[in-house]
Amino acid sequence: MVSHFGEVIFPSSRAFWDDEDEYEPTDNTEHSLELYIRWLKDKPECIQKFIIIEGDPLIPFVEQCLCPKMEEVCIIENENHKKVSVIYHIDKQIYVCVILPLFDTKNAGKFVNQIYDLLLSSENIISILCCHISQFQSTSVPEIASFLRILATKTVNVSKCGIEPLEQPNIVFGVGAGVLSYAELIGKPAKLYILYIDSFVLDSKCAEPILQVLTDEIPCKLQPKFKEKPFSKGNLYM
């Protein structure tokens, strides 16, 4: 069972609000993100599987390994006409939505609202999120390069997946988490795979768990190895 991510929890008392909040304008529409969907091909009326890929390390993996012949069919842009997401057609009625690094995850709720019609027309919804292992909270952290955890809606039997459910007090956020909550509300089957890696780049070894998942989910030949892109982050946050 999935809990509802993305909820706003207000303080029980105004004593917990910052003093500056009293002087902030109530109308923040000028800072509101605007998203625009542009279909390059006909919009699908029915989707067998809708797969959402999120997390910077997964992008080169998708580009090189997921499916060499995938076709770009939809672009989602922000108000500055910068791409924040791309939807690809993989095979038959299978579509992959890649969340690009430019997208700010604090706007995940608005993104989910923009693609709600695609979620409604999807028979199965799969989200894949990549996180650094330092974000995994547990008294027993696996001492391996990468491992998977899973969250799912009530209609999915997680035990058949052969992957341990994400235990408390771990928290996930972003588009995948929002999509999972929305799927729970509308009664759609959905799964969220969280790939934890011990590096800031995804190499062939770390990608093995998620590669196996995609092999089972997508009926096309995947490239098992890929060239890692160099790590280019300027700061390290622990």
Rank of each mutant, 00 (worst) to 15 (best):
A15C: 03
D18K: 07
D18N: 08
I9A: 03
A15L: 03
T29C: 10
L40F: 02
F61T: 11
E7K: 02
L40V: 02
E24F: 02
I52V: 15
C67N: 15
W39R: 03
D27I: 01
K43P: 06
K41M: 13
F50L: 14
D56V: 11
L33I: 14
K41D: 07
D19W: 07
E7M: 00
R14V: 13
P11G: 00
I37N: 04
K43N: 07
K41P: 06
W39N: 02
S32T: 13
V62D: 06
L33G: 04
C65N: 05
L33C: 09
P60N: 11
D21W: 13
D18A: 07
E30L: 13
L40H: 03
Y23K: 10
P68N: 11
L66Y: 03
W17G: 08
K41N: 13
L40E: 01
W39V: 02
F61Y: 15
F61R: 13
S13C: 03
S12I: 07
I51N: 04
S13Y: 05
R14D: 08
I52N: 11
L35D: 00
T29M: 11
E22V: 12
A15K: 10
K49N: 12
A15E: 11
H31C: 06
I37D: 11
E63N: 15
Y23S: 13
T29G: 13
E54W: 06
K49Y: 04
